[in-house]
Design a binder for these strands. Sequence first.
DNA 1: ATCGAGACCTATGAATATGG
DNA 2: CCATATTCATAGGTCTCGAT
Length: 322
Amino acid sequence: AESLLRTGRSFGRSIHALCNVHAMVSNGIARKGEQSEEPEEAFTARERRENKMFAALLKSLLGLEARLMAGDSEDILLITTMLQKGSSSARSEDIKILKSIILDWLVVPGDTLFPPMSANVKADCGFRHDATGALLCPVGIDWNNLEQKIKSGELKVSGEQWPIMVYASYTYNEDAPWKGLLQSSILLKVFRQIFTSRNGPRNIGMHTSLTSVTPASIAYAAVQARFALLSSAVFSRSNTVTDSEIFYNCVIDRLEAPDNIREVDCLLAWWNRLIFPDHTPISRLISKNSVLAKIKAKRMAIKLAALGNPETLLHQLPDNES
DNA sequence: ATCGAGACCTATGAATATGG
DNA sequence: CCATATTCATAGGTCTCGAT
């Protein structure tokens, strides 16, 4: 039971944050039964993704698969309830911590916000304040020009629009939309807070199969960062004002689209180098005995060398690791 | 008087937030 | 991480009003 909670926390943070665990598990079990007959192509994209999530979940806790496959519906409900609880409580605890510190990250140490904002009054944040509004402003839109329209609600910002805060140096290049994407300093700080601080799962990977940054974990950090800057007080999956779920899925869609594999590999390597400095990203890419993977890794090595050092802002980061 | 559509209220359980 | 408080969504109830 204890381990189910922990697994749920980790599942939410790095596999999928905003799903109905019971539905996902039920579907997973059902499909596993018919897997022998149904070819992979018979599944919709959504089902395939759900299968992946389910597989990742099974791998993350020893004995879980056997227990789920035993088919005791009461036991399954108990398990999924615990997992959901772990996932939800991790989310709200992360929200709580970020709420209290994210404003500190918006200014250089020693400086103050103008007008002043208090960490526990979210109502002042979001598009109502320059400091947060400028970061939430969708890419391609100049905050200085449209500030009034966004503030007054004349212009609605949806979850499908990428806030400039996910781009490195808060700079978006229309001709190179991958440049700096999901590599901003604020996102990195949020990720570190969630995954490597004293409160977060320092031992990321210990009770999961994860030993590296996942697309979903980046999306999770992004949705947390975005919500922390917004003025809404309550995080709600279905809330159409904050659109958190839509935004989260957008990030995941982009990171899982087959067309983007090369860019995403590069991005993940960047993250892994920062979050798991002890592991070399090159060796990580060589999976098993695949020749293709080795060629890929070699290309990656060249690419990485060309990429140079991670964002220059990096050295300003407070070092909150042990 | 009867009916149904809609506005408004209320109780309840589920989802979130928060203090310790 | 847990226990408690707060907030939200929903179902069901009551009331009003216009049409028949």
